[in-house]
Structure formats: structure tokens, C-alpha cells
């Protein structure tokens, strides 16, 4: 063999990888963020473009658009949230299993955008906790992918084992109703 192989080599390492459990679990999580496509307006067209071959959101493990909140990890709010839709959106978010994240895609979902009107919710962060805001009207798929990468970075930093309910139960700590402290503060803003 003339070239040096970097990374994991099963012949050398014998099917064993040494790492921290947290790091491994976070790695699993961040590379399989299944979106709940909350496509409400024109941003949804760009979201679809991100899923198609040119931009290919599958490169980030997020190609599994699940229209079931039970099977999704990140809700991508793509479009204008009217007050009438806000109730359904909140309900779907509540139905998603922890851990869950939210991407506010585009101006409307982030702030209400150009719709300064009686009918439009002025930013989806007043009803659900948003992790990543993506600017644009609508944002190009590159911007969505960049926002997704920022979310992956955030997910990779979040401890997994420490916050599991079973961990706190085994350690005798008081049970917290929500074991995972994700998505409580809007942290990363993408411009």
C-alpha cells in the first residue's frame, strides 16, 4: 500500500472506535435531522428545491421529509404564519418528540416579514422556540443549507446523556418534565 489511509480503518482498529458516548450520540443526531416541512408559502418552494438533486439536502442527512410530527426532529417553518395557521403549527410542534428543533426560514417566519397586518403572526418565535433564523424572501437553498449546518453545529454541542431522563432517574436526581434543554433560546442567527 503506497498511500496512507486516514480516518477509520477496520483492519487496523479492529471494528472498535474509541470516543465519548455523548460525542457519538450527538454525531448520530446531527447527521440525521429529519425535517418536519411546515411549508406555508413561497419559502416552501425553496425548501423543495433544497430537497431536489441540485442542492440535495440528503448530503446533510435531512432528506427524510416527514409529514408526521412523531417522526421528525426539526420543524422548518417555511412561509407566512397567519394567526389561523399558528394554532395548527403550535399543535404540530407540541406533537413532535423530544429532542426537537425549529428553523424559522425566511422573513415571514422570522418576523412577519412584509405582512404587517392583522392576520399575520409577527414571527413564529412568539409561539415556538426558534433555534436558527434564516434571512431572505425567500432564502435561496444555499441559505437553508447553511442554516441547517449551523443547527448541526448547535446540536453537536448539546450534551445528550446528561440530559436524558433515564440518566437523572439513575442518579436519583429529581425528574424534570423536559429532560432536554434544547431550543429554549434563539441562539444562532444567520444573516
Amino acid at each position: 500500500m503506497t498511500t496512507t489511509e486516514f480516518g477509520y480503518n477496520s483492519k487496523i482498529e479492529g471494528d472498535v472506535v474509541f470516543t465519548q458516548l455523548d460525542a457519538a450520540l450527538a454525531w448520530f443526531r446531527e447527521n440525521s435531522l429529519w425535517p418536519m416541512p411546515m411549508g406555508l408559502a413561497c419559502c416552501a418552494i425553496e425548501l423543495m428545491a433544497s430537497g431536489a438533486s441540485r442542492f440535495d439536502i440528503a448530503r446533510f442527512g435531512s432528506e427524510v421529509m416527514r409529514f408526521s410530527p412523531r417522526q421528525s426532529d426539526v420543524m422548518i417553518v417555511a412561509g407566512t404564519v397567519t394567526y389561523k395557521m399558528a394554532g395548527a403549527l403550535k399543535r404540530i410542534y407540541d406533537q413532535m418528540a423530544e429532542p426537537k428543533w425549529v428553523i424559522a426560514m425566511g422573513a415571514c417566519a422570522s418576523t412577519g416579514g412584509m405582512y404587517r397586518s392583522y392576520a399575520v403572526l409577527q414571527g413564529v418565535d412568539s409561539i415556538v422556540p426558534v433555534d436558527v433564523y434564516i434571512a431572505g424572501c425567500p432564502p435561496r437553498p444555499e441559505a437553508l443549507l447553511d442554516g441547517l449546518m449551523k443547527l448541526q453545529k448547535k446540536v453537536s454541542r448539546q450534551p445528550v446523556v446528561k440530559d436524558l431522563m433515564i440518566t437523572s432517574a439513575l442518579r436519583g436526581a429529581p425528574k424534570t418534565p423536559t429532560g432536554v434543554v434544547v431550543g429554549q433560546a434563539p441562539a444562532v442567527t444567520h444573516a
Binding site: Y83, A86, G87, G112, Y115, R116, S117, Y118, A119, V120, Q122, S126
Partner: peptide
């Protein structure tokens, strides 16, 4: 909301456990 005496920005309303509305920030607009 389409009545002429209703402001474009909307009015605050609150129905507990159902929904709410807040006036949109018009900033002197439209």
C-alpha cells in the same frame, strides 16, 4: 377586520387556551 373602522395593524385580542393576536408594528406605515 375588513370594516373601515378597523385599523390595518389589527387589534389585540386574547382567547385563553385558543389563540391571541397582537397589533402588527406599522412604524408609521403602511
Amino acid at each position: 377586520p375588513l370594516r373601515k373602522d378597523f385599523p390595518l395593524a389589527g387589534k389585540p385580542s386574547e382567547v385563553p387556551d385558543v389563540a391571541f393576536t397582537k397589533p402588527a408594528p406599522l412604524e408609521g406605515g403602511p
